[in-house]
């Protein structure tokens, strides 16, 4: 596994996601910055957590800078970042 990986862009309607491995048992350390945090902050966090779960990730540091991405974009960027970290890309 790599030390760090990222995916996405800072363009409007996209999200930039950075991931780093964490030791087993650390859980998910998630930080979300978003231009629509007030309206969608909870929704974004929920989508990211669900995507990590579907990828069977239990321990990871995730920093997301959101520019108003919709769910399917968030899912895509998280998945790409995780795959890159695991060098599955």
């Amino acid at each position: 596994m790599k030390e760090k990986a990222w995916a996405g862009t800072m363009e409007s309607s996209d999200i930039y996601v950075e991931v780093e491995p964490l030791a087993t048992g650390s859980g998910i350390d998630l930080t979300v910055n978003s231009v629509v945090y007030a309206q969608f902050g909870d929704a974004i966090e929920k989508t990211i957590m669900e995507t990590l779960e579907s990828l069977a990730i239990d321990d990871m540091k995730v920093v997301a800078n959101d520019r108003g991405a919709v769910d399917c974009t968030i899912k895509a960027r998280v998945e790409t970042a995780v795959r890159r970290l695991k060098e599955e890309a």
Binding site: G8, C72, T73, K75, A76, A89
Partner: peptide
């Protein structure tokens, strides 16, 4: 290439 194919897949699936 990797990020585009996943993004396109999700777009077709969900949009």
């Amino acid at each position: 290439k990797d990020s585009a194919r996943i993004l396109v897949r999700n777009a077709i699936r969900d949009l």
